[in-house]
């Protein structure tokens, strides 16, 4: 019975982690689409923004489950301190530490995003930039720490995620990124 529970926790921990990775990939891509001011996927501009938010919150919820289940999983040997301070874990401390780092970033980004009306756009935007650090850290953590890290199917999944983010990023940095190429606000004034 206990063994079954352990296996279940382990599987749940792995599964939630992987789906969270997919969710965050989706979040990042949708964030970039949303920032471009373009309607996409037939849901309009506000729809893209809402999907972005929903994907982010889903991913965050999954991560909560992910660390929760692994905390109760005796095999993973997580301690409470590992939720906050990176690189102190007993099992693969480096790879686990990356996960902790990602969780720390996630907490800050989530809190600031939920309180964005209060903190104002400057802080919101600065902190939101940290997502570009969060995503690769989370990906490397998944590849290094995950027990499926070596499996081909997982590598393919990770590769697809990386490709999606790579394409979105290069579009973000391209000249035609902002919609319709109209004269828009040349941002001479920082805000």
């Amino acid at each position: 019975m206990t063994a079954h529970l352990d296996t279940a926790l382990w599987a749940l921990g792995r599964g939630t982690g992987m789906v969270a990775l997919v969710m965050f990939t989706l979040t990042l891509v949708l964030g970039i689409v949303s920032r471009s001011g373009r309607a996409a996927l037939g849901v309009g501009r506000f729809g893209v923004a809402e999907l972005h938010r929903t994907a982010a919150l889903t991913g965050t919820g999954l991560i909560t489950l992910h660390i929760g289940t692994l905390y109760f999983d005796p095999y993973a040997q997580l301690k409470l301190v590992d939720f906050v301070f990176p690189f102190l874990g007993s099992y693969r401390p480096f790879w686990l530490g990356l996960g902790t780092l990602a969780v720390d970033l996630l907490i800050v980004i989530t809190v600031v995003s939920l309180l964005r009306e209060r903190v104002g756009p400057r802080v919101f935007r600065a902190v939101h930039c940290a997502t570009y650090a969060l995503w690769p850290v989370a990906l490397v953590h998944a590849l290094g720490n995950g027990s499926d890290g070596g499996a081909l199917w997982f590598r393919v999944l990770a590769g697809l995620c990386a490709a999606a983010v790579g394409i979105a990023l290069s579009w973000r940095l391209s000249a035609g990124y902002v919609e319709r190429g109209r004269v828009r606000i040349p941002r001479s004034v920082p805000r």
Binding site: G37, A39, G44, R45, F46, A49, P121, R184, I185, R191
Partner: peptide, 10 residues
């Protein structure tokens, strides 16, 4: 602040 994303008008 407005940058003309247009979500509001939708």
């Amino acid at each position: 602040r407005c940058d003309g994303h247009g979500s509001c008008a939708e």
